[in-house]
Design a protein around this nucleic acid. Structure first.
Lengths: 329, 329
DNA sequence: CCTGACTTTGCAACCGGTTGCAAGTATCGC
DNA sequence: GCGATACTTGCAACCGGTTGCAAAGTCAGG
């Protein structure tokens, strides 16, 4: 089996402490014993057991990565960025899929059982209440894509959803649309309601512009398509702000299916700027969310909390901007 | 902080062993002490520390989930299925992103350091040599989407790529195409060369049919588009088998960009049948790979190995079939 | 060569669990 | 009521590391 501290110690002719110290950052060992130990370790193909180490140091370098978005392609990019970013720092993501978890308590329990050092909740649909549970369990937690609050309960990294709503409304008005629509994610998602809120703020200032709105059942292609088909069965607006790219693409599919064209008959603006939006048979005009920076900041935040768990919760916001492609006239 | 075995033991007025036993499956405790212990545990909000448990039992219930495919949307589905399936069995995925890892040794080391119970390598582009390294390190390993071999080095679950190549060729011939092309993933990927192999097997039997082939730089949209643009700059074939859906979509984008139409001018058949292929503005004809069954079988395989690490490696293959949509004439 | 300051080392206790073993307690048949 | 048998239980050692503490070693200066 794998060799242990003791094996190495015996082979190198030193104490177990000496071995332990050569493998701990900043411990005091003479270079002579260090060399002996390293040689013995190499011979035996030894590597320290992180679990045992975690047991004594209560630092496991395990980070819970919790999400319920396994059907929105942008989250593949998110997972890619998270895993790389954590790995660079020597941290390890323990992935938790909350999709069909009825009881969040269960995940919290399990993350505590593995004594993770921290938790990253990556979701724009989970309520703030959820991440609070982690905090109450004594776990450092960062809510990525969480709802902005000036004085949040838990650390939050993301975008100003209300502002994105405003931005979308302005983009549509600037293009001269006078009958616009909002197509959101589920109305239980804070992101969906916040984006609508901002959208309305601008439209209130333009009383002559008509507005319709509808919440889709989820942030998914099918939900977007279904919602847009319903819109089309009445008098649809001239252009829609779909609160997510995958929703937008679903909506576009519905528009095409109805024999209409994007952007000639109906304009679409999305949100996220996921890779697929750039595919040039999609070429979606969308509000770009800088997910690479968001992920980076989230990891930095959680790392900072490891050293200083007590630091007050704050919200970090990143600016978004419209990327014009081919789905607005 | 979190309460421990000792705290519970004291509160319940029993020994630490008694507490340990009430939390271990099938250990002998009287119902009287069990009740006392459970009550005390509830009061103290106790839960066993898996790391400590793992240390004595050398079972961590941690499974390394290793992949290098973080840019192919089908892998979001794969991760979704894996995480759920592992969670159902009380196992926890430790996610490893190999994308920019120059040295696989490094990941292997780290998985050993966390004493994972097993490893699932989910990739069709990693060479068999890679998963062998895990096996040699004494870790039970399953290579999902790995290369088929009648007597493989490590357990393999996937599809018969050669047969898929044959299937694609036959589908194209049946549609009357007489000048066909193969557009593969990188020629370092076993899946790409195997699929080509099968494709050729059929075409050899039809000497009158012309064939061209080209390997894309990776399994990605951009690589597919670039490769197809190159094809189009010469005399393209009438229809292509693109060895992956995301490659197919890239290729379709190139075809459209060149002013040609799918399927009128050029036909496309993909492989995977990822969710996006079903989007009805894509509507890709493709060879369906039953990823849900593949994932399920992979997890079952790795679970079986936990109990019996010595079992001989075998390959499990799942049948594929063509799903006809709108990209062949 | 001696002293004092600093560095290196080993001992032993601890992190939070599991488990073989032997002693203690119930249960049963007679 | 007794002995045999089957359950329960606690002790103590162990899993593979870390770390405070004190003893031992090193070195420079006088």
């Amino acid at each position: 089996m794998a060799s242990t501290l003791k094996d190495v110690a015996e082979r190198a002719g030193v104490s177990r402490s000496a071995v332990s110290r050569t493998f701990t950052e900043g411990a005091s060992v003479s270079s002579k014993t260090r060399d002996k130990v390293l040689a013995a370790a190499k011979d035996l193909d030894y590597q320290p057991n992180f679990l045992a180490r975690g047991l004594s140091t209560s630092r496991t370098k395990l980070i819970g990565l919790v999400s319920n978005n396994f059907h929105n392609p942008v989250f593949l990019e998110v997972f890619d960025l998270f895993t790389r970013s954590l790995q660079e720092r020597g941290l390890r993501p323990l992935l938790v899929n909350l999709s069909d978890e009825t009881d969040p308590e269960h995940s919290i329990q399990m993350l505590r059982q593995y004594s993770v050092d921290g938790v990253i909740v990556a979701s724009s649909t989970l309520p703030p209440r959820f991440s609070r549970l982690f905090r109450d369990a004594g776990l450092p937690v960062v809510h990525t894509f969480g709802r902005y609050a000036p004085k949040p309960d838990v650390h939050t990294v993301g975008i100003d959803n209300v502002d994105c709503g405003r931005m979308a409304a302005q983009a549509l008005l600037a293009k001269g649309y006078r009958h616009v629509g909002y197509l959101g994610g589920p109305d239980t998602a804070t992101s969906a309601v916040d984006r609508f809120e901002g959208f309305c703020q601008i439209l209130k200032q333009h009383p002559k512009v008509d507005m319709v709105h509808r919440y889709a059942a989820s942030y998914s292609f099918d939900a977007g398509r279904t919602a847009m088909l319903q819109e089309l069965s009445n008098t649809p607006a001239e252009a829609y702000f779909c609160a997510d790219d995958v929703l937008s693409i679903g909506a576009m599919s519905a528009v095409q299916q109805s024999g209409r064209k994007v952007p000639e008959d109906i304009g679409i603006i999305g949100l996220n700027d996921m890779e697929i939006a750039r595919w040039n048979n999609i070429s979606l005009t969308t509000i770009r969310q800088p997910i690479d920076e968001i992920v980076k900041a989230s990891v930095e935040q959680v790392v900072a909390m490891l050293d200083d768990p007590g630091r007050p919760a704050k919200a970090t916001l990143f600016p978004c901007h419209v990327v014009y492609r081919s789905t607005l006239r």
